[in-house]
């Protein structure tokens, strides 16, 4: 709870001190899996239940992302076993959801390719080039949520087996929309996304 309190009160120094005291130089994933990830998970659940605000989840994820970068640099060899994840808003200029999810996934040690607001047409080649295993799509606009259909169709035509996980307001307000647009799964929040990534990949990494 102590680490959670430091995050929700935006006490970066105290949060850093807790992580520094647990980090021995070669136990980054242990720190992530035992302290950072469970805490972000609890914070995500608090948001999903309306007990904290999105801004608090955002700031907590941002602080954790910074902390993980200090103990597990982007090029750390130990990241190699993590699934390769892509993320886009499919032309939606509303970036907050993507930002929270990016921070959350980075804080969990994932390899992440951020494609900004890249649309379905341009993202297909990127997904192939980067070997993306799961593409996360975050949208706020209902019409852009429907762009996932185009994405799925392009993947099918190109025989790309990258999984698509969607999230964002339209999917929250209509819990069947992810099926309608042809996604492989949806995540109600950043926390659930980790579970869904492993689920669609059928692994227990």
């Amino acid at each position: 709870m102590e680490f959670e309190d430091t995050l929700l009160s935006l006490n970066r120094v105290a949060a850093k001190n807790i992580i520094s005291s647990e980090f021995t130089g070669d136990n980054a994933f242990e720190v992530i899996n035992e302290i950072i990830s469970p805490t972000l998970e609890r914070i995500g659940e608090l948001w999903a239940h309306g007990e904290i605000a999105l801004s608090q989840e955002y700031m907590a994820s941002r602080i954790c992302e910074e902390l993980v970068e200090t103990i597990l640099p982007a090029d750390a060899p130990s990241r190699k076993n993590m699934p390769v994840i892509g993320i886009t808003t499919l032309r939606d200029e509303h970036m907050l959801g993507k930002r929270i999810l990016s921070s959350f996934l980075k804080a969990n040690g994932f390899n992440l390719f951020d494609y900004g607001d890249m649309g379905p047409e341009s993202i297909v080649q990127k997904v192939k080039d980067d070997g993306i295993e799961v593409l996360m799509v975050s949208t706020l606009m209902l019409n852009l949520a429907h762009e996932v259909k185009k994405l799925r169709s392009s993947f099918d035509n190109e025989k790309i087996d990258t999984k698509i996980i969607v999230g964002g307001a339209p999917f929250l307000f209509d819990r069947n929309l992810w099926k309608e647009v042809g996604a492989d799964s949806m995540a109600v929040d950043a926390t659930e996304s980790v579970e869904k990534i492993h689920e669609v990949l059928g692994d227990a990494r």
């Binding site: 700031m59 200029e93 970036m95």
Partner: peptide, 11 residues
């Protein structure tokens, strides 16, 4: 200014 930048500004 975009949502995330705005939250950064507020905080």
């Amino acid at each position: 200014m975009g949502f995330e930048n705005y939250l950064d500004l507020i905080y």
